[in-house]
Amino acid sequence: MAYRETEKMRQRKAQARQRIIDCTFECVAEGGFRSARITRIAGLAGVATGTIYRHFESREDLFAEVFRLATQREVNKVAEALTTTGNATIRLEAALRQFAERALRGPMMAWSLIAEPVDPKVEEERLAYRKAYADLFEQAILEGIDEGCIPDQNARQSSTCLVGAIAESLVGPLSPTQSGQASRNLKDNNDLLVGTIIRFCMQGLTGTRR
């Protein structure tokens, strides 16, 4: 008789897979992808290292999955901010603020998502993540053009510029080599940093000083 997996076994496998993902996320949030070693993940999850490879073909596949889930969470938060009441410029400012403030509250995870050197499969997810932001910003810019609060322009190109500007402006403050010092010296100045980023982005988008 052929073996048939029971519902209980399927649930156990799903639970083990979720523990592996959760523990990998925890490792990345603490020290980036470079610190997320398979042996450590297995220990935290309470499974053998071989169990990880029964759920994920490779370390790369595990990291790509964790990256995908983490970035979708951030994209969802920006999408939520874009539903703020007000015209498109107000909504875009809210979304940019959401992006920057969440990054500064979780600098290691944000660094890992934005700039940490990663394997090719994870880099593919990073490109998809940046495109997801650009798609959201493009729609808001098009709405702003229709509303008359944003000058007519190539919305796709402008949205890509917004993603690049905000990500690049956060690389320094989020870098593990600087964020520790920054957290000691500039903790009270995050509002200033976020304000500067938003002002730069919105002035570039609207052509007016804010």
Rank of each mutant, 00 (worst) to 15 (best):
residue 14 A to G: 06
residue 11 Q to M: 10
residue 177 T to W: 07
residue 31 G to I: 03
residue 134 A to K: 01
residue 22 D to N: 15
residue 133 Y to W: 15
residue 200 F to V: 05
residue 14 A to D: 14
residue 67 F to D: 02
residue 4 R to S: 07
residue 1 M to E: 12
residue 30 E to V: 05
residue 102 R to V: 04
residue 109 M to R: 14
residue 93 E to C: 12
residue 73 R to N: 09
residue 79 A to K: 14
residue 13 K to L: 09
residue 43 G to W: 07
residue 139 Q to M: 08
residue 155 A to Q: 03
residue 45 A to E: 03
residue 18 Q to W: 11
residue 203 Q to I: 04
residue 103 A to V: 00
residue 35 S to I: 03
residue 200 F to M: 09
residue 134 A to M: 04
residue 208 T to S: 10
residue 120 P to N: 08
residue 78 V to W: 01
residue 17 R to Y: 10
residue 52 I to D: 02
residue 110 A to E: 01
residue 156 R to Q: 15
residue 43 G to D: 13
residue 125 E to C: 08
residue 44 L to K: 15
residue 180 G to L: 06
residue 34 R to H: 11
residue 3 Y to E: 10
residue 6 T to V: 04
residue 83 T to W: 12
residue 140 A to N: 01
residue 37 R to K: 15
residue 45 A to S: 15
residue 187 K to V: 03
residue 54 R to L: 13
residue 192 L to T: 07
residue 114 I to V: 10
residue 92 L to H: 01
residue 207 G to M: 06
residue 209 R to K: 14
residue 70 A to D: 04
residue 149 C to Y: 03
residue 47 V to Q: 02
residue 169 S to K: 07
residue 89 T to N: 14
residue 60 E to I: 02
residue 48 A to H: 15
residue 49 T to E: 15
residue 51 T to C: 10
residue 81 A to Y: 03
residue 13 K to W: 07
residue 189 N to E: 11
residue 120 P to D: 12
residue 174 L to S: 01
residue 167 A to S: 12
residue 75 V to N: 13
residue 128 A to I: 04
residue 19 R to V: 04
residue 121 K to D: 09
residue 139 Q to W: 04
residue 91 R to C: 05
residue 102 R to M: 05
residue 209 R to T: 04
residue 180 G to H: 07
residue 36 A to R: 00
residue 69 L to I: 09
residue 40 R to V: 06
residue 81 A to N: 02
residue 177 T to G: 11
residue 138 E to D: 07
residue 55 H to D: 06
residue 10 R to Q: 14
residue 7 E to K: 14
residue 141 I to P: 00
residue 154 N to K: 15
residue 61 D to N: 08
residue 104 L to T: 00
residue 129 Y to M: 12
residue 101 E to K: 11
residue 179 S to A: 10
residue 52 I to P: 05
residue 164 G to M: 13
residue 206 T to H: 09
residue 46 G to I: 06
residue 181 Q to P: 00
residue 5 E to Q: 14
residue 122 V to F: 04
residue 8 K to G: 09
residue 127 L to A: 12
residue 163 V to N: 00
residue 143 E to C: 08
residue 155 A to P: 01
residue 178 Q to F: 14
residue 63 F to W: 13
residue 172 G to D: 08
residue 87 N to C: 08
residue 192 L to W: 13
residue 204 G to E: 12
residue 173 P to G: 05
residue 151 P to C: 07
residue 92 L to W: 00
residue 162 L to K: 02
residue 145 I to M: 15
residue 76 N to R: 14
residue 180 G to D: 09
residue 176 P to S: 12
residue 137 F to C: 01
residue 45 A to F: 11
residue 195 G to F: 02
residue 115 A to N: 13
residue 73 R to W: 10
residue 208 T to V: 08
residue 132 A to T: 04
residue 161 C to M: 12
residue 49 T to L: 03
residue 48 A to R: 13
residue 208 T to W: 03
residue 22 D to S: 10
residue 107 P to I: 00
residue 200 F to P: 00
residue 92 L to Y: 00
residue 57 E to W: 09
residue 76 N to C: 05
residue 204 G to V: 03
residue 113 L to R: 06
residue 131 K to P: 00
residue 5 E to S: 10
residue 187 K to E: 07
residue 190 N to Q: 14
residue 113 L to K: 08
residue 183 S to M: 13
residue 161 C to N: 13
residue 142 L to V: 05
